[in-house]
Amino acid sequence: MSTSIVPSERAADRGALAAPLDDGPRQREARAGRRRSATRIALGGALPILLIALWYAATAFDWVPAHKLPSPDAVIVAGIDLWERGLLGMHITISVQRVLLGFAIGAAAGLVIGAIVGLSRFADGVLAPTVGAVRAVPSLAWVPLLILYLGFGEDSKVTLVAIGALFPVYTTVAGALRHVDPHLVEMGRAYGYTRSRLLLTVQLPAVIPAIISGLRLALAQAWLFLVAAELVGSTMGLGFLLIESQGNLRYDRLFLAILALGVIGKTTDALIGIGERALLKRWG
């Protein structure tokens, strides 16, 4: 190789030949990050794999009577069967739709009520005890009344999910707004920011992390209330699949519905988690 190589060529050479040995701190960091997340996935995946293996063993070696505990492959077969008849897709779609709709409505209402209670001492005094009492009512207690008022259709289910999603957002937002650093609020006032401008400039950005964790709790609660709504008086959805399978003694479909709820719930939570990380980078 001659000595008159231009620098850019030399750099390209080095990049091509010696990349694994000679890289910058940024690449090293990225590689370490990938290794960390690979470790996390391996750690998090170990227990489910072990549980499925135990499950399989329990059915294969007849530790549990076969009609009470279906084998994993029987659950998969039941899933394929329902899917091919278009039922599994329908149940999942309608459940997800109810959760998302109810979650959006409930979270928006929780945000508004939480902001009012968190910002105004007067509203806090008037509203907080009543809202607290309404929150204390167990989810299932609403169902008969909602069915009588709103019927068996979508309205009663979405309303129940919204009730479930409202309170976590309300509680976290009201609490966080009450505890925004008074120094920052005073600074804002000193610079002429009042009411809505103060809210948008100082208070709301300060509680964004709290809002996100409230939303995350609300989504979990939304799934909880969805199943409550679907267990009583419905003809579709994963909750209906549960109650129907109970009636037919279809253990395989029961397991299928529970697994579906777990996987979809975890997925929606993970999606919020990704949004959370992006927002915290900006506002945290």
Binding site: M187, A190, Y191, T201, P205, I208, R282, W283
Partner: peptide, 27 residues
């Protein structure tokens, strides 16, 4: 909160989610 004055406090009291420039902009 007289706007003919401007106050700097003992603590900087900067908005942690804003850059230095955006914090100055607030004034």
């Amino acid at each position: 909160a007289d706007q003919r004055c401007a106050m700097a406090f003992q603590e900087p009291r900067l908005l942690p989610w804003r850059t230095a420039a955006r914090n100055v902009q607030l004034g």
